[in-house]
Amino acid sequence: MLKFVTLFISATILGCTYGLISLSYSLIYKSSGMMAFVNPDLMTWGAFLGFTFYTLMGLPYPIAVLLTCVVMFCMGFAIQKGVVRNLIKRNVTPMYITLTMFAMGYILQNLSQLIFGSVPRKFDSIIPGLKIQLAGIQVQPEAIICVGVSLLIMALLQFFMNKTKLGTAMRAASMDPMAAESVGVDVSLISGLSWGLSTTVIAAAGILCGPIYSVSMVLGANLGAKAFAGAVLGGYGNMIGAIIGGLAMGFIETFVSGYISSDYKSLIAYIVLILFLFVKPTGIMNERAIQDV
């Protein structure tokens, strides 16, 4: 029983992290219609920035988080304006955009290595010394923060996209940019904002799981790949699907490796990905994204 609870708690943490990452994938797809491959590297950046502000510079945690989000938002905005928009303007084939995204990811990864070093670092405890007991298991306070904040972000994002004017404008711009422009939506600005938002979400994912998994170069790549599978599972491009898919992925991975064999831990994500791509590419929420592609 203890084992089940342990696995459940761990799966929730992992699932929430995946959920946030999947959300950021879907956000970018919804707003620019492209599969972004830079997200994992942006996540690493988010984690390292948070680490720099909090552990290295000693700023209070909420300020560190805020600063990181601001910096990452600007980065996302800049990428959209500087790179993506120019590519779209020049009417290049989607293939080129994908390749450029790969290149960008590579550049970000190496820049990160140059600036932050390639050695894994420890993200200081947010509330040092505090140990929480949950159903007999010792849980890090950071884990509770991670789950709590993730769920909060997901809920806020849903509210934002559906109930606010800006969110509606984003959805409209992604549905039909020309129509959106015609009703008065500044599509150019909105696209930049969407990217900025997506980057911020994934940076948040990075900061939240930094204290739990330690901050390293491979953080983003490893989690990003599996979160991608989660996004496909839920329906690529669908916001709710991303959350469901991410959570599901976390649970599948944890329970399979806990009860069947740890050999399959990473493999299971890719098996799920391939399965869904072949059998049900629209995912659980029946999102048409991948069929169109």
Partner: peptide, 20 residues
């Protein structure tokens, strides 16, 4: 006896088996 992937970050499942 549990095996893991070095690139991974969450080892709760195999470790839970070990601890139990």
């Amino acid at each position: 006896k549990e095996s893991i992937d070095s690139a991974d970050t969450d080892f709760t499942a195999p470790l839970a088996n070990i601890v139990s």
